[in-house]
């Protein structure tokens, strides 16, 4: 399958990647090769097979609802590009948000 330049740019936007015109031309054929490789799976008839949601043969691993210590704040903020000692600092965002 072939990707249009617009589709590549849309994928890049969703992944927050900035691509030059050169890179857009380069990435397209690469993605196509990856999809073609995976496409081999379509040769198999899976009509009677229930979709699998995990590769592990186990279910129901859970933890009791008990609080355990996390990170010290100083440690949590240590690797942040910017922090004010209490918060992570990021470029301004509008109130509201997503989700």
């Amino acid at each position: 399958m072939a990707f249009s330049e617009q589709e590549i740019r849309q994928l890049a936007r969703l992944a927050r990647l900035e691509l030059t015109a050169e890179e857009v031309r380069m990435v397209g054929p690469q993605l196509e090769r990856i999809l073609e490789f995976v496409q081999q799976l379509a040769e198999l008839n899976t009509d009677q097979v229930e979709p699998m949601t995990t590769a592990l043969d186990i279910q129901n691993c859970w933890a009791a609802d008990q609080v355990a210590d996390g990170l010290q704040r100083s440690a949590a903020l240590a690797n942040a590009p910017q922090a004010d000692g209490e918060h992570f600092l990021v470029p301004p965002v509008l109130p509201g948000g997503n989700g």
């Binding site: 910017q82 918060h87 992570f88 600092l89 990021v90 470029p91 301004p92 509008l94």
Partner: peptide, 14 residues
């Protein structure tokens, strides 16, 4: 996320 528009902050606090 908190953004103090009146304080003229150029960053949001998370």
């Amino acid at each position: 996320s908190m953004h103090d528009e009146t304080g003229g902050l150029t960053q949001s606090r998370i």
